[in-house]
């Protein structure tokens, strides 16, 4: 079933990306939540009990796949972890990599275990994350080097993105089999590409990854951070069930690009409003979105990007309260 057919009909769907506020609320460290299944689950349970979102996403981690491929990861900041260095800089090193088995590679098993534990226990859908092929290729080769190689060594860039899509397909398959209803494919690094470069390197691998999620019975959603307006055309051709978009974009243009069968999720400013603001500013920002898009059956109110751990829970309460707001 496509995402649009799984949305609730008795209220307006609201889906904040709030893993890190859950870590803070549980009084835990990001490293503990991303290395200990029981701690991750504790944060998820807290978020479910307080907010009962229409989809509860696990804690975002863009290093899982790279780490499973042998790259070093740091948890230094107590926020989202980062890949330390990007050693896969030539075709020979790339060719030496193997698609990891998600059941026994790095921290992939943690996310599978948490998904399995949450399956069937949530009021809404269970959401998982999987890194996008271009973004993983950038973690492997270095974002600047990969960007340059899209021009100077397109064969390498293409091979790196294709391989990364295969890593994503294996992991996303396992996530859906473990219990994820929705898989958000995180492709932030692709925001820097021209539409033509996106078409050349990203569109087909993303479509392949999305098709795999769907064939397993999950709903693929594509998330790109920042101002992705110039990519709406090619993003709409990737066969996703939904696009999750960041606060600098005008969602009206996304609705024009995707048509009525594709869900558009967004896009309250995660830092300027959700973290720095108060419940009143959250009501105001989300009220504007609801006024503009609230009548569209393929609209889901959400945050433009992953919420920082410092986001006050009352601000998330204010966002969730928009479920029952006028017009729902």
């Amino acid at each position: 079933m496509k995402l649009i057919d799984r949305l609730p009909t008795d209220h307006r769907p609201v889906v904040p990306l709030m893993g890190y506020p859950g870590v803070t609320a549980a009084g835990r460290k990001a490293k503990a939540a991303l290395t200990e299944p029981v701690t991750h689950l504790e944060c998820m349970t807290l978020l479910e009990n307080r907010f009962r979102p229409d989809a509860l996403f696990m804690i975002m981690d863009l290093t899982v796949e790279a780490e499973a491929l042998g790259l070093d990861v740091t948890f230094e900041t107590d926020g989202p972890p980062s890949v330390v260095s990007h050693p896969i800089d030539d075709a020979a090193k790339l060719a030496a990599l193997k698609v990891p088995d998600p059941r026994r590679s790095g921290r992939m098993p943690l996310f599978l275990e948490v998904a399995a534990s949450l399956k069937g226990k949530l009021s809404g859908m269970l959401g998982a994350y999987c890194i996008g092929p271009f973004t993983l290729a950038a973690e492997l080769a270095g974002p600047e080097d990969l960007a340059i190689k899209t021009i100077t060594d397109p064969d390498f860039a293409k091979s790196a993105v294709d391989f990364s899509a295969e890593v994503g397909r294996a992991y996303a398959t396992a996530l859906v089999r473990a219990g994820a209803d929705v898989v958000a494919i995180l492709e932030p690094t692709a925001v820097m590409l021209s539409p033509a470069t996106f078409e050349q390197f990203c569109a087909e691998p993303l479509a392949r990854l999305g098709a795999t999620v769907r064939s397993e019975g999950g709903c693929p959603v594509l998330h790109i951070c920042g101002d992705s307006t110039h990519l709406f055309g090619p993003m709409a051709t990737c066969g996703m069930d939904g696009l999750s978009l960041d606060h600098p974009v005008d969602l009206a243009k996304a609705f024009e690009a995707v048509g009525p069968g594709t869900v558009v999720i967004g896009n309250v400013d995660p830092v300027g409003v959700m973290m720095e603001g108060d419940p009143q500013s959250v009501r105001k920002a989300s009220g504007i979105l609801i006024e503009r898009f609230g009548d569209l059956p393929n609209y889901v109110l959400g945050t433009g990007c992953d919420l920082p751990g410092e986001t006050p829970l009352e601000n998330i309460d204010a966002l969730m309260a928009m479920r029952e707001a006028a017009g729902a």
Binding site: E144, A147, I148, T150, I151, T152, M192, L193, S194, T197, H230
Partner: peptide, 10 residues
């Protein structure tokens, strides 16, 4: 938006 990041980097 005639050039994007890769073009600028090169």
């Amino acid at each position: 938006k005639e050039y994007f990041v890769p073009e600028v980097l090169v």
